[in-house]
């Protein structure tokens, strides 16, 4: 039977507004986001599968709460192109490119080739002044990484909110780069279902997609 008892991890949705809120006061808190970045990868690398997505992902829970219980989602099917493999992997590659560009900018600031940019870049395009959230005190590269990382976290949360409102509450999960990465790791660990012939998904009786 379904276990309806609430666990401590069912309240992790609170982490999303706290994390984004802290970034308004001091951008250096953005470094905490490395937890959300490393933990899913470590869990899947060390055999925990997609436990992070399935149980601990604060953003997934946050979108589920807003779109589900608070009924802010239109609950329409996610568009076919958005759930295609091409889009999922394409978005992962795009995400990687932008992430390494952010690391490159951090390196340039660290080597004094560029000044610290005290802004948050939304949707990889729009520079939003964010100088109030940094009072100095850290090495320039540390602050630059915080601004860059916070930009990624805020942008991806906003994209998640937009697709939550337009489609299903957790439509973001379909193309979430962390989800795609961890699933790839799990696929490598589990062996390809195509090779073993069976992913034990019960889909076979309706015409197996892996056959």
């Amino acid at each position: 039977m379904k276990n309806t008892a609430k666990h401590w991890y069912d309240y992790l949705w609170i982490v999303t507004p706290i994390y984004l809120g802290l970034g308004f006061f001091n951008i250096l808190f953005a470094w905490l986001g490395m937890i959300f970045f490393c933990l899913p990868l470590l869990i899947s690398i060390f055999g925990g599968g997609k436990l992070y997505c399935n149980r601990y992902c604060d953003r997934g829970q946050f979108l589920g709460l807003l779109g589900g219980r608070l009924r802010l989602s239109a609950n329409r099917p996610t568009p076919r192109w958005m759930r295609s493999r091409a889009f999922r992997y394409g978005f992962l590659i795009f995400f990687f490119v932008m992430f390494f560009q952010m690391l490159w900018t951090t390196y340039l600031v660290g080597s004094s080739a560029r000044n610290l940019g005290e802004f948050v870049k939304l949707f990889w395009m729009f520079k939003v002044p964010w100088h109030w959230a940094y009072g100095g005190g850290a090495a320039p590269w540390v602050a630059q990484f915080a601004f860059g990382f916070y930009s990624i976290m805020l942008t991806s949360t906003l994209i998640g909110l937009i697709v939550m409102a337009l489609f299903k509450p957790r439509s973001w999960c379909v193309f979430c780069p962390m989800g795609t990465m961890t699933q790839l790791i799990c696929r490598l660990r589990a062996g390809k279902p195509e090779e073993s012939g069976c992913a034990a998904c019960s889909g076979c009786k309706g015409g197996c997609g892996n056959a």
Partner: peptide, 14 residues
């Protein structure tokens, strides 16, 4: 009837 999962499942756990 019973549910069956297609191969493009993203394993999100919803």
């Amino acid at each position: 009837r019973y549910a069956a999962v297609g191969r493009d499942c993203v394993a999100c756990g919803c």
